[in-house]
């Protein structure tokens, strides 16, 4: 790895862009498979918002196609939460709730970045959509409740990584206030889960080997397959255009 690549991979903007791109791709996987047409459109809209955010951020760092399609798995800096497979609808919704609330709080702090100021409105809607579904699934039928609780329990271990400070991410020269962010996130998530009759897990937020390595380029098993599918076209036909 050259020095310039190492410097690029250390940019906090790259982590934010990778979060958005990877989650966008995951949501896009619902196309043609969502439980109802209305939700398919809703998830695709969220995916497109995230894709737009990723493109804007990549544009600040270099060539967007190169960054999205020609990096190896270990060079992606997204948090592991975003790459988790869609699972059932409850898993997708809980993943979105956890991520969108974090993104809303973080982007809300980045008041000196026009990109974040614009994105935070989109993200507030993503969070609202996920919140409404969490309430309905948690407080719905016994089956939807069970699936929602399982999703919360399964994804909980990936939430610790969200609050690891992204080195170099500043607001008007000061570092982001990660403690405030975590406290707000905890309070919000506990409130939504409570209203949805779901339990906040007591299990740790990091698994034994420290989940949280997504920011260091260590990803979970399914990410490689997702990346292969996402990058296949560009790698097979460099420069292909619609």
């Amino acid at each position: 790895m050259t020095d310039s690549t190492a410097a690029l991979l250390a940019r906090p903007e790259l982590a934010l862009a990778d979060d958005a791109l990877v989650l966008s791709h995951r949501l896009g996987e619902w196309a043609g498979h969502a439980p109802v047409l209305e939700e398919e459109v809703a998830l695709a809209n969220i995916a497109l918002d995230l894709l737009g955010q990723a493109r804007a951020l990549y544009g600040e760092l270099g060539d967007e196609d190169e960054l999205a399609y020609l990096r190896e798995e270990r060079q992606f800096r997204n948090c592991q939460l975003t790459e988790q497979p869609n699972g059932d609808f409850a898993t997708t919704i809980v993943r979105q709730l956890f991520f969108s609330r974090w993104q809303e709080l973080l982007y809300g702090q980045l008041t000196d970045r026009p990109l974040a100021v614009k994105a935070v409105k989109e993200v507030a809607y993503h969070r609202d959509h996920a919140e409404h579904w969490t309430l309905r699934l948690g407080d719905g039928t016994p089956e939807s409740h069970e699936r929602a609780q399982r999703a919360v329990d399964d994804l909980w271990r990936y939430t610790g990584e969200l609050f690891q400070p992204l080195e170099g991410l500043t607001v008007e020269g000061h570092p982001v206030d990660w403690d405030t962010l975590r406290v707000s996130w905890d309070g919000y998530v506990a409130d939504v889960l409570d209203r949805a009759t779901l339990r906040v897990p007591e299990s740790p937020r990091q698994s034994g080997w420290r989940a949280g390595a997504g920011r260091q380029g260590l990803h979970t098993e399914s990410f490689g397959r997702m990346l292969a599918e996402m990058q296949h076209l560009h790698r097979s036909h460099p420069g292909a255009r619609w």
Binding site: E38, V41, H132, W133, R136
Partner: peptide, 20 residues
């Protein structure tokens, strides 16, 4: 028109389908 489980979700679906 659209399908939705309740009014709140209908409003959100409408936003996604008709006012994007």
């Amino acid at each position: 028109s659209l399908h939705a489980p309740d009014a709140e979700m209908a409003l959100r679906n409408a936003r996604d389908l008709y006012t994007r």
